[in-house]
Write a protein that binds this DNA or RNA. Structure first.
Length: 460
DNA sequence: CAGCTCAGCGCG
DNA sequence: AAAGCGCGCTGAGCTG
């Protein structure tokens, strides 16, 4: 366990410096945008109050004041007063859910206003407000913890640097346009590509998975998309094919790795490919394929004419996935889980013993998630040392599980990239001989004095 | 007012 | 056999 201790000791010293460095915030922008959102939210709330839907909801509450931000009140009105059948239940299973997915499924126009208000409040109160209130002299200093996460991953708070919007374009723009490098500097982010898949392979050593990782021309997600949707060739440059591949990656492959099963995968795949949620699959359903026909027609030709049949099909795919394609990975999962059940703990490659009462999915995922982060942490420590050794003006200002964010003095950009690449892809593999697959990094940069919104991938 | 749980939602 | 993993922040609603 000494190795694990030393990693966290060196790690927290390196991260303390990252915290002191911090990231520059455009406070004028943040405050202006904050107030702009407040005005917008006020207008939308006024608009909502004028609707019949809102008046009836308010009437149903009697003396209680209506609060459209209250899931509790909304749940009561929709599913008790109006007696609508909830599209799904909340996680606790006790109440009808009023999350975005559920409200969209109800197809009530007024609820779009509720969701719009919810989103804008999230951006204003969780991000812009915390940037303003946590900033000191125009810098935020997010905290990076190594002693909270059960997997020995990190976490971040005050403000959380690890959940800044990026998937939703509008949210990404509003929030990331508040974050800047030091004057005359530029932001750089390097990240490990598919590091959890690589680290998982070091644990289970499945030969087929190792082949996928070693052969850059092979593509596990494309192969699965071809198998699930009966396709002979998959060209990622064609948008519909890219959607099928990404839908398969995010709706089947990764959920399966995390311990999900085919029934849940159906709903996810159906959403990605625009197929009906249940019932009969018709010719006009689903993505339009390059041949001009819809996925629905294509599946019908292959004998899949209903969601029920698609579900049975996916059950067979799942069986093939774990018993024919990745049988060694599968037997590792069984052995790892069974060994834990006998011992009450499991050890990671990076020097940690995780003991306690856990469920199967945690026991299988924690060593991978933890060790993958430790690769990043070791690299961050070494890159930090190198920046000091060469007396560079560039600094590390943050870390997001598999990536490092830098505030770069522009003349040093190429050197920082060279140093980082050497440490992350060469030195780490010499230090830890249990890493039996190659690791790769990608890089994104902003131009000088540009906000974090503009980061773009570069070749390295 | 402090402190808790829950629902919802942002990220890897 | 079991039924996606890990985090932090906010507001609502409740208890004491």
């Amino acid at each position: 366990m000494e190795q694990g201790y030393n990693l966290l000791h060196d790690g927290i010293l390196a991260l303390a410096e990252v915290e002191r460095n911090g990231m520059r915030v455009d406070l004028d922008y943040a405050k202006e945008k904050h107030d702009e959102l407040t005005d917008l939210i006020d207008d939308l709330e006024e608009e909502f109050k004028k609707t019949k839907f809102c008046k009836h909801w308010g009437y149903s509450l009697g003396k209680t004041k209506l609060n459209l931000a209250s899931p509790y009140q909304l749940e009561h009105y929709l599913y008790k007063v109006k007696k609508i059948k909830p599209p799904k239940m909340s996680d606790s299973g006790k109440k009808g859910s009023t999350d975005e997915e559920s409200l969209r499924a109800l197809n009530i126009p007024e609820l779009d206003l509720v969701l719009r208000i919810r989103k804008l409040k999230k951006l204003r109160d969780t991000y812009l407000h915390s940037f303003i209130s946590e900033s000191v002299d125009g810098f935020i200093h997010p905290v990076f913890n190594l002693h909270f996460a059960r997997t020995f991953r990190s976490s971040s708070d005050s403000p959380n640097f690890q959940n800044i919007p990026i998937r939703d374009e509008e949210a990404k723009e509003i929030i990331r346009k508040a974050l800047f490098p030091r004057e005359g500097h530029q932001l750089l982010e390097i990240d490990y590509s598919g590091v959890e898949v690589c680290i998982a392979a070091c644990y289970h050593k499945d030969p087929t998975m190792i082949k996928y990782i070693n052969d850059p021309k092979s593509d596990m997600h494309a192969d699965m998309a071809k198998q699930i949707f009966f396709i002979d060739e998959l060209d990622k440059n064609i948008p519909a094919m890219k959607t099928l591949r990404n839908g398969t990656k995010n709706g089947f492959v990764f959920p399966q790795f995390y311990g999900d099963y085919y029934i849940n995968n159906v709903a996810s795949l159906v959403a990605w490919t625009k197929m009906p949620q249940e019932g009969i699959i018709k010719s006009e359903h689903g993505l339009e394929l390059p041949s001009g026909i819809h996925l629905g027609e294509h599946l019908r030709e292959k004998g899949i004419k209903s969601i029920k049949q698609f579900t049975e099909h996916l059950k067979e795919i799942e069986y093939h996935f774990w018993n024919k394609r990745f049988p060694v990975y599968n037997s590792w999962r069984r052995k790892w889980w069974s060994a834990y059940q006998k011992k009450g703990y499991f050890d990671t490659y990076t020097g940690f013993r995780i003991s306690g009462v856990w469920d199967r999915n945690f026991v299988i995922n924690a060593p991978v998630q933890g060790s993958a982060f430790h690769c990043l942490l070791w690299s961050l420590i070494e890159v930090g040392k190198a920046l000091k050794k060469y007396k560079m003006k560039s600094r590390i200002i943050g870390q997001i599980h598999d990536s490092i964010v830098f505030d770069i003095y522009p003349p040093e950009l190429d050197d920082v990239l060279d140093i980082s690449k050497e440490i992350t892809c060469v030195k780490l593999l010499k230090e830890w001989d249990w890493i039996i697959v190659p690791l790769e990094i990608e890089a994104e940069v902003c131009e000088v004095d540009q906000s974090w919104y503009y980061k773009k991938e570069i070749k390295i």
